[in-house]
């Protein structure tokens, strides 16, 4: 039979269907196992916690991480409810597909947990010394490979969204904010510089449009 454009298209579709008819809508067990072998934030946190505090404290690291995750979900729901009310929208695809938002929120939740618990009681004296120096802010942003300025962006919303934070914890988060604004946000790889550049460009355009007298 002569190959017409329509027949060629039909054949291509048929070929694709033949390949995919027996394929699954879900990842195979093999693929799931590859996914499960990926390093995730939970692994990173537990590993770095154990490195800083001592391998005997792995379980404490897991507990701290679980608490951080609970707080992350709780605050995220509260933030979304308040954004829903403020913006009258129910679809948060853009925000919820933003990985930096999630890591920032999780980092803030973990910082609250870490600052609340402080030093594990059963850590040895040497371990305690390491922990006090290594696990305090900005340890969390370093191990999660998060830019300080991105953490800064969630702190205020976090405080507003969680009414049960103690006055001390609010002060602690405020101190983190100050450290970010005073030094950490000005490191050479900070996203702040790009924002300043964009802002200057916008201002430049606005200046050009405005009559000289204004």
């Amino acid at each position: 039979l002569q190959q017409t454009p329509v027949r060629a298209a039909m054949n291509t579709i048929q070929q694709l269907m033949m390949i995919l008819n027996s394929a699954s809508d879900e990842p195979s067990d093999n693929l799931v196992s590859y996914f499960n072998n990926c390093t995730n934030l939970s692994c990173v946190f537990k590993q770095k916690f154990a490195e800083a505090v001592g391998q005997g404290c792995i379980e404490i690291g897991s507990q701290r991480y679980r608490l951080g995750v609970r707080l992350y979900y709780r605050v995220m729901e509260s933030i979304l409810k308040s954004e829903e009310k403020r913006l009258s929208i129910h679809n948060f695809s853009k925000l919820l597909n933003n990985n930096i938002f999630h890591v920032s929120l999780l980092a803030c939740a973990l910082e609250v947990v870490m600052a609340t618990y402080g030093t594990p009681r059963n850590a040895s004296l040497n371990d305690r010394t390491i922990m006090e120096t290594d696990l305090s802010f900005p340890w969390i942003i370093n191990i999660l490979d998060l830019k300080a300025f991105d953490l800064y962006k969630v702190i205020e919303s976090f405080i507003k969204a969680e009414p049960n934070l103690t006055r001390e914890m609010i002060k602690h988060l405020e101190c983190c904010e100050h450290r970010i604004m005073e030094s950490l946000a000005w490191q050479s790889d900070s996203p702040l510089f790009e924002l300043i550049k964009q802002s200057k460009e916008r201002d430049g355009q606005a200046d050009q449009l405005e009559p000289v007298g204004n």
Binding site: L87, F92, K94, N98, F101, I159, I170, K171, E174
Partner: peptide, 21 residues
Amino acid sequence: TQDYHFGLEEGEGISELFDCD
């Protein structure tokens, strides 16, 4: 939260900070 200095403008929220409309 009475001692905390809020930096977001009135009517602004986290969506704006993460470039969401």
